[in-house]
């Protein structure tokens, strides 16, 4: 119960974290592109897919920016810039190996607070353009937030409950004997679903859906689009990677160093998330809201109850 930052990485890791995240994210984009090329029946090859994130980055960096008539530029640009910064701040508490950049006592709450910034960010981007399609996209994301947030919080709380701590490194330490995914499979699944929904990644991508010509992102070009799309990818990577310390024992495992296991586990989770996106059509919130409230919330509460009983039993 000490409040020190005994586990935090040295401060010079702070500037390294974004670099690391961007490299990982580029890799994830490349893998996704390779999967898409396979579905199209194109023979792009691994190398062809690997340069796609670079080409896209170059394209958006030299691209011309645009401002629509009577746009609310202030909210529009702040919204876009919030997304990557929020993802970065959320990543601060994710242990890269056995130690995070910042080992906060209330790390889980911090993570939750940072990712919820996406609500404001996407809505502001959708609103700012003064464009009907993009506006609808922004509102869709708020509706989505109302649906996924409660199961998400319950999943986070269940992991914290089993460890008796809100500190992410304590949660990892509490899984020395048994990964939490074993005693809380429902929370794990609910967490992954909500992590995907939070990054508005498919099948929860209605906010930037094709049916809205890109939705919230419809009017973004050039560097504005780069920051928004990049932020979205970062958020996906960070949110999914957080499942590793919460449910999969963090860096625990034989032979490899801790960071190696974190990379392997996070890579496996990200791959399955990319794969799942291809398995389902986009889930609309007029359908999902009821499912989330009537099925997922009671299920995650029941899961928390089970874990609470386990914790009580252990205490006796």
């Amino acid at each position: 119960m000490d409040t020190g930052d005994r586990m935090a990485l040295p401060l010079w890791w702070v500037p390294l974290l974004p670099v690391l995240l961007i490299v990982v994210t580029a890799g994830v984009v490349a893998v996704d592109e390779a999967a898409a090329a396979r579905a199209r029946g194109a023979r792009e090859g691994l190398l062809g897919s690997a340069v796609v994130p670079l080409r896209e980055g170059a394209r958006l960096l030299v691209g011309q920016r645009r401002r629509t008539v009577a746009a609310d530029s202030v909210l529009w640009r702040i919204g876009g810039a919030t997304l990557p910064v929020a993802a970065l701040l959320a990543a601060a508490v994710v242990p890269l190996g056995s130690r995070p950049v910042a080992d906060l006592t209330d790390g889980v709450v911090w993570f939750n607070a940072m990712e919820v910034l996406a609500w404001a960010a996407v809505w502001m981007v959708g609103w700012g353009a003064n464009s009907a399609l993009s506006l609808v996209g922004g509102y869709r994301f708020v509706a989505q937030g109302l649906a996924y947030e409660l199961p998400h919080m319950f999943a986070l709380i269940t992991a914290a409950l089993a460890a008796g701590s809100l500190r992410v490194t304590d949660i990892v330490a509490a899984q020395q004997d048994l990964w939490f995914v074993v005693i809380m499979p429902v929370a794990f699944v609910a967490y992954l679903v909500s992590a995907v929904a939070m990054a508005f990644w498919g099948p929860f991508d209605a906010a930037v859906g094709r049916d809205l010509a890109g939705g919230a992102a419809a009017e973004l070009s050039g560097v504005d689009r780069l920051v928004f799309a990049g932020g979205r990818w970062l958020l996906l990577v960070v949110a999914v990677a957080m499942a590793v310390p919460l449910f999969l024992g963090g860096g625990a495992g034989p032979w490899l160093p801790a960071w190696g296991w974190v990379a392997v586990k996070a890579g496996a989770l990200l791959t399955s998330v990319l794969w799942l996106r291809r398995r389902f059509p986009t889930v609309r919130m007029d359908r999902f809201t009821e499912v989330s409230w009537v099925v997922l919330v009671p299920l995650t509460v029941a899961q928390a109850l089970v874990v609470a009983l386990v914790v009580l039993g252990r205490g006796m």
């Binding site: 906060l104 006592t105 209330d106 709450v109 911090w110 939750n112 607070a113 919820v116 910034l117 609500w119 404001a120 809505w123 509102y139 708020v142 937030g145 947030e149 809100l166």
Partner: peptide, 21 residues
């Protein structure tokens, strides 16, 4: 007051987005 500060941020973001709506 780490917890109170962070939870204030968490709640206020949600509530202000709802208020904007």
């Amino acid at each position: 007051l780490g917890y109170l500060g962070v939870v204030t941020a968490l709640m206020m973001v949600i509530e202000m987005v709802v208020m904007a709506v």
